[in-house]
């Protein structure tokens, strides 16, 4: 075991050279590479943090916008809902009004139709009644209805002579109104009876299509009538009673 000092010196020199070589080719490249990589990682982390912060800000902004849009949407929905409700109410009111008007029109039309039907029925009934009466009078006694009415009137006029004179007052004309013109014979008969009852009086014969079949006699303020209007009213009452009875039966 000996120390070769030349070798010692050579080994010192060798080691120092090795230190320089490894510093040049090992430590510095490796450590610089690590530092560069760490720097790169730090920069990337900073960039990532910046991007994350930007993303968080964008997310917050997005969230705020969504909340704002939701609030706007709620208000718009409320407005639309209110408008739709108002529109619906208006449509309902309009529909109800139209329905009411249609019901009124229908009611009026129904009433009008009923009225026309009653008028037609009355007209038909009157015509039938008159026809039957005329036929019965003609078949049973060979007389017309007008002859019988004039005969009945003249017989009553004779009994009412004083009352007629009092009712005539200053009036010197009797107006005889019929639905259809009276035959000339009946006119003369009636005129002669009136003149006999009330001397110095004129007789005027008129026709009125709207008048009930029969005879109306107006003298001043007095009016005497021998018409079938009362019987026609009775017929109408009878028809109305029958109609109501049918309605009640249908309702049951």
């Amino acid at each position: 075991m000996s120390i070769d000092w030349i070798t010692v010196a050579a080994q010192i020199a060798n080691f120092l050279v090795l230190v320089w070589l490894l510093k040049r080719f090992l430590y510095r490249p490796i450590l610089d590479g690590i530092d560069a990589r760490e720097q790169q990682i730090t920069e990337r982390m900073s960039e990532a943090a910046r991007i994350r912060a930007a993303a968080a800000a964008a997310a917050a902004d997005h969230k705020a916008q969504i909340e704002k849009l939701q609030a706007v949407r709620e208000s718009v929905i409320e407005e639309v809902r209110a408008a739709a409700k108002a529109e619906r109410d208006a449509l309902l009111v309009e529909a109800r009004e139209r329905l009411t008007q249609e019901q009124l029109a229908w009611q009026q039309e129904r009433l009008e139709e009923a009225r026309r039907y009653r008028a037609d029925l009355q007209h038909t009934g009157v015509a039938a009644l008159l026809s039957l009466t005329r036929k019965a009078l003609d078949d049973l006694s060979g007389e017309t209805l007008e002859e019988r009415i004039v005969a009945r009137a003249t017989s009553r006029l004779l009994a009412m002579t004083d009352d007629l004179a009092a009712a005539a007052g200053d009036s010197r004309e009797v107006v005889v109104t019929t639905r259809e013109p009276l035959p000339q014979q009946l006119r003369k008969q009636l005129e002669s009876q009136l003149v006999a009852a009330l001397p110095d009086i004129g007789v005027q014969f008129l026709t009125d299509p709207d008048q009930s079949p029969g005879l109306l006699l107006r003298l001043g303020a007095a009016q005497l009538g021998w018409t079938v209007a009362k019987y026609i009213d009775g017929l109408q009452t009878m028809l109305d009673d029958m109609s109501r009875a049918n309605k009640n039966t249908d309702a049951l």
Binding site: M1, I3, W5, V8, Q11, I12, L16
Partner: peptide, 15 residues
């Protein structure tokens, strides 16, 4: 191995 030489280890120790 050079480390089996006392000269080398002495050199390293001196360093």
């Amino acid at each position: 191995p050079p480390t089996a030489s006392l000269s080398t280890t002495v050199a390293l120790a001196l360093l």
